[in-house]
Design a protein around this nucleic acid. Sequence first.
DNA 1: AACTATTTTAAACACTTGTTTAAAACATAT
DNA 2: ATATGTTTTAAACAAGTGTTTAAAATAGTT
Lengths: 208, 208
Amino acid sequence: MKKDATTEEKIKEAAKQVFMAKGFAGCSSREISKAAGMNVALVNYYFRSKSQLFKIIFETAMEDFVTSMMTVFSSDQSIENKMRIFIDREFEFLSKHPELPVFIITEMNREEGCSIDHACFFEKIAASGIFNECAQAQAEGKMREINILSLTLLIMSNCQYPIMAKNLMQGIHGISDEDYTSNLLLHKQNVTDMLVNYLFPINSKTTK
Amino acid sequence: MKKDATTEEKIKEAAKQVFMAKGFAGCSSREISKAAGMNVALVNYYFRSKSQLFKIIFETAMEDFVTSMMTVFSSDQSIENKMRIFIDREFEFLSKHPELPVFIITEMNREEGCSIDHACFFEKIAASGIFNECAQAQAEGKMREINILSLTLLIMSNCQYPIMAKNLMQGIHGISDEDYTSNLLLHKQNVTDMLVNYLFPINSKTTK
DNA sequence: AACTATTTTAAACACTTGTTTAAAACATAT
DNA sequence: ATATGTTTTAAACAAGTGTTTAAAATAGTT
């Protein structure tokens, strides 16, 4: 009987994979324990309940989600460069964690999901000052003056939806996984150009 | 005992509400039958199984989803006007069916969901000729020359994500349902302007 | 009204689920 | 080696699940 954290970590890792793929309701404690190669009773021994385990996994996912954005926010760059880098980073991050946006959005839409306190995560974004920075750039005429929610939506829609709707798009266009992935790289350039074009019209003549 | 279709319709309607809100795995036959005010055995009597009922609901949802787009495709308008109308229609349609995109995307991501034949729905989109029409407009220099998948993604990302990520956005920006809904109307204009700006650069000086 | 067909109901069934329990196995301390 | 603490296992438990079954209720036909 090993006293180290291996069992707990194994269950957490398995839970992360299974919960992200199937959501809370879509998988059982037994499925998770089987994926971890551990006895099902250990879910309760280490995490007290399936719900508690889920809470931990969800919060870690939110943390990763927010952290993937934060590194750009605090960098010493113009707001336009920040957006360019943000888009690059987001496409790269999501190519490695493709289930993340769907997971977060669907579990936030779930009633029980809403009971998990998300405020701490979102406050980090606000605390980064990125929204103030955007408002400042707008006031100085460096960026199109649209409201901050709309700005967030324009950027995040174009970064996250292509990953989320992969299967839908493959169905509509009849293309393979490989083709979709390679097309995403090209698409990222279109996203960047379009957003720069619209949000930074003064500078956007360089992108045709 | 009534011989009309009321029972069957009641169960279908209840199933639509519950499946769309919670997905296949997130609700039970008993929950659906309770929502319909009917006995649980009737799910099997009328639809043979929970799975078959789900298949019918999902296919109807796909039909609605595709139909919401098709009316614009076949109209006699310029490709730019079609896109403008498409955006209008999509925002309006999704304001009435906010669970639809998340439902379709998550159930398409589910393993069993992929076994449902979606090809017939997607073929309708291709058969509408809208993709050919876009290619033609691009060849004639009326529209930016980007690949059709990228075009689909740019448009659909900006129409659907704002609805899907409502709870996430409300969390990040700390706003209420009412505020979010009213902001979406403003956002739609930004979406239209941005897309026209990028896809129809020759015509886009009228949108600033 | 009697017979037949259909719909509905409630119980039963076999299985799954999250959780608890108690014992076995292992680790640590003396 | 013994005692104590921790981890793991497997069984048991109560509740939930999708489905089936048989009877009751209703509808339709003669």
